[in-house]
Design a protein around this nucleic acid. Structure first.
Lengths: 207, 207
DNA sequence: CCTACTTTGGCACTCAGTGTCAACGGTGTC
DNA sequence: GACACCGTTGACACTGAGTGCCAAAGTAGG
């Protein structure tokens, strides 16, 4: 919900409205389900006009997905911050782990949002679309790290895709178990499977 | 577009309408872009009522995505048909290759549809959502093949995700090169990267 | 020919999303 | 303090997607 205190008053006011909208939307959607809630209900709860809603969010889906969207940017930043000498599997694992940890901080709310997204086709679709953007950014960062040509090498795209596959698998398990299973442990297990491909010297193909 | 001759007359008529609608939609959408085309234009071109459109397709996105949706079912079937003794990487590679080949049959039309989907956020989102369903089915099939418990083992979900990552990467490259690059060759390259993880004896993790 | 069933078209309705404009509220400047 | 400037807001109108409903047309079967 809230991020930083922000400097100017206008920015702070904007943040307040955004938070109010997000809070109202998340509460209503989690309680009644995605389709059963209209924008009019949300804005009535938040106390702003319908038009204002669309000045803060591009669509009804956006309110929910935004909540997880920042994670993507964080993941790329985390990858870029890893030491250059680190093996790809370790760098990606830490990047994803950091994102997952940020998710765990919000605890309950995050779990409910994830369950809402994974359980609502329209939201799931938007979520995956956002992820496709992360994938491209992660791939670009990987190509930079390994000094590969993004135009010809398949590895960066594939490695980024594998990392996100791990992320999604962990998310699905975590959400399916109502937060019972430990995300960190699941992630470690996932990367144990993926590591041979992520760190292979290339050309060790046996198929 | 067309599938089988169909037996009864009613079914054949239904098929004709469906084809007409799909054809009109694909032609208009590819020419003018997704947002610039309304359902009214599509039904006017196809010569049916607006209401009828929604009796054949759930949404505007559906017309386009349906075109590739059958591929998913084919992919699962192809995997199930592979010999049980085959290594996972080979079985998955053949399953994806078959799907890609089916894509190549329609040649031009398939290329334009893929480019339309990948270039339109709303369509891309729906496409990825469909893929998530394929992923679950592929994972279930893999778990059956390897006699793993889908409830605990992460491997099936991850392997299915990797295969679809390869599929998507190849599709993106193929579409980006306007059909110049060879899908089969790209797929082989992708699976060369993934194979070490797909076929690893499990526990060879080095992270 | 009459009946039962399916398909279709037309209509009205809800809701998402956008463009426009006028009113409001701070922020600076003279 | 009066002024002009700029961003935010609310209200209204409009397009387009998607749904429910009902009556008409076509089809199959007795």
């Amino acid at each position: 919900m809230s991020t930083r205190p922000a400097a100017t008053l206008a920015q702070r006011k904007r943040q307040v409205v955004s938070d109010e909208l997000t809070g109202a939307a998340l509460q209503l959607l989690a309680r009644k389900g995605y389709d059963a809630v209209t924008i009019d209900e949300i804005v009535a709860t938040a106390g702003v006009s319908r038009r204002t809603f669309f000045r803060y969010f591009a669509s009804k889906e956006d309110v929910v997905v935004r909540f997880l969207a920042d994670l993507g940017a964080g993941m790329c930043a985390a990858l870029a911050a890893r030491p250059a000498a680190e093996r790809p599997s370790a760098a990606l694992r830490h990047a994803v782990a950091g994102t997952l940890a940020a998710c765990g901080d919000h605890a309950d709310r995050a779990l409910r949002v994830v369950q809402l997204i994974l359980g609502t086709p329209a939201l799931h679709a938007r979520f995956l679309e956002r992820q496709a953007e992360w994938r491209d950014e992660l791939a670009a960062e990987l190509a930079r790290r390994l000094d590969l040509d993004p135009g010809t090498a398949l590895y960066p795209q594939l490695a980024a895709g594998m990392a996100l596959t791990a992320f999604n698998t962990v998310l699905a398990r975590w959400s399916g178990s109502d937060g019972t299973e430990d995300p960190a442990a699941l992630l470690a297990g996932a990367f144990a499977v993926l590591a041979p491909a992520l760190d292979a010297p290339q050309g060790t193909a046996t198929a």
